[in-house]
Amino acid sequence: MATVETSAAPRLTRRDFESDQEVRWCPGCGDYAILAQVQRVLPDLGVPREKFVFVSGIGCSSRFPYYVDTYGFHTLHGRAPAIASGIKLTRPDLSVWIVTGDGDALSIGGNHLIHILRRNLDVNILLFNNQIYGLTKGQYSPTSEPGKVTKSTPDGSIDNPFKPLVLALGAEATFLARTIDVEARHLQDVVRRAHAHHGASFVEVLQNCNIFNDGAFDSLTDREIKADNQLILEAGQPMIFGRERSKGIRMNGMRPEVVNLEGAPAAELLVHDPSNPVLAYLLAQMGPPNFPTPLGVLFEVTRPVYEDGLARQVSAAQARSDADLAALLGAGESWTVG
């Protein structure tokens, strides 16, 4: 198995992961908070700095690698998973991170996203979902809500949006999580767990674009009301939420429903089990207006990792053959003249 090696080198700090480049996101952008939390987590992962590679596509989120002092590759719109695949297959010892956005990953790069998830390469995908195109200045995105009025949809969007986690689950991702830009600790925890997962980790980070889609996630970030709208998932724990922790989720037949804890015994509540794909689907579908938004690790299972399979095939081939180049060139029927 190809696991990222642990370093015995001096302890790294957040500063080791701050590049000398001026960060050029708009003031107030949610990306700053995500960058800060990732830079806080990286030193703790036990990976030497030179073994991190951040790969991105195009869009606001994709400027991320320039600001992290590791190896980085700012690639083409939508293509980060393809380029990251080549990096990981060449050097399985590297810790490969893909930073992308809702347009980059789900629109122009949708094909590459589903295939990297299907193959289950051991990479970490951070999808910053702000439900808008920021860098091209305000068109609707494949996660924008129906009816969204933008520059390119003056009469409202008639597109049905993707739910990123449902899509990723459909592609048989082995790790699905959701977090929010402003929830520092939660974000750090999710990033750590994504790194720990052996396989493709898909993390949706809800991120506020304060210029073109400000307040998209207010119901999840406003101190007054967020507790009523966030469902914090913890493995083995019943699904309880609300400011007073007075509400829960239970199944009514085949469908989930929100119940008041006063009227329902705790034993009836759904208990989070990240290994259950059926539950993962229910959670990935869940959200406003009738349900809280699940946050945390929705799903985590182990499945063969692509580069491990490749390594096995390479070892087997090397065991069978001594890789004699002269013999390869002269293989098959040959004849000698003179």
């Binding site: 998973p81 393809a82 380029i83 695949s85 080549g86 990096i87 990981k88």
Partner: peptide
């Protein structure tokens, strides 16, 4: 696109 993308990633990685 992914074919050449992966190839370019591989070149970046050595």
């Amino acid at each position: 696109i992914a074919g050449i993308g992966a190839a370019l990633g591989a070149s970046f990685a050595g």
